[in-house]
Amino acid sequence: MKKKLIGLTDEELIKEFQDNNTIEAYEILVNRFKDPLTNYVFRFLGERDICTDIVQDTMIKFYIHKDSYKSFAKFSTWIYTIAGNLARNELKRRKRRVIFSLTNDDPEKQVQIEDKAFVSPERATDSEIKGELVQKALQKVKPVYREVVILRDIQEFSYEEIAEMTNLSIGTVKSRINRGRKHLQKLLKNIYSG
C-alpha cells in the first residue's frame, strides 16, 4: 500500500488521507516535509529545540485539521503557512519573556559567543563558523523581512507562493525580500567577499 502511495503527489496524498483516512499517506507527507520545515523554522527562530516542537505541532495540526485543506491550493503552501504562524506566535511569546540561558544544551558542542572584532578572516572561511555568523546575522534582520528572505533564498519558493503563505501582495513580498537582503548584506560585508 505504501509503495503505491509513495509515487503520488502531495495533493493526491492529502486527498487520500482526507477521503479514506489513510495513515500511510499522512506518514509519507510527514516524511517529505519534516526536514524542510525544520530548516525553515530553525532559520527563522534560531533555536534547535523549539523548532522541533514547532514542526511537531505543525504535523499535529495537519493531522487534526486535515479537512480544512482545500485542493485548489498547493499542499506545501498550506503546511508552510501553518508552520509560519506557529513560528511567529513563538516569536511573540519570546518577546514577552526574558530567557537567560547560561549553558549549552548540546554537551558535545561548545558554542562560544564571540565578539565580531575577534573574528579573523582565516577563521571566517570555516563553513561551520560562517554558518553560525550568517545565522546570527539573520536573527538581527527584522522578522517580517527575515521570513520572506528565508522562503525565497533558502526554501526557494516563488513570489506567488510566498505571497500566498504570508497573505501579502506580491509587491509587498518583493519589497520585503529586498529590504531583508539589503540589511543582511550590510551585516555580512566582512565575510561574503570571494
Partner: peptide, 25 residues
C-alpha cells in the same frame, strides 16, 4: 544586486529533523 547574499543563504547547511521525530509524533 543581492546575488551574493542569496548565494550565501543558499549555501547554508540544511538543518534536519531529529531521528526520533516521527516516532515522537
Amino acid at each position: 544586486q543581492f546575488k551574493d547574499v542569496s548565494k550565501i543563504l543558499k549555501d547554508l547547511p540544511k538543518v534536519n529533523a531529529p531521528d526520533n521525530f516521527e516516532y515522537n509524533l
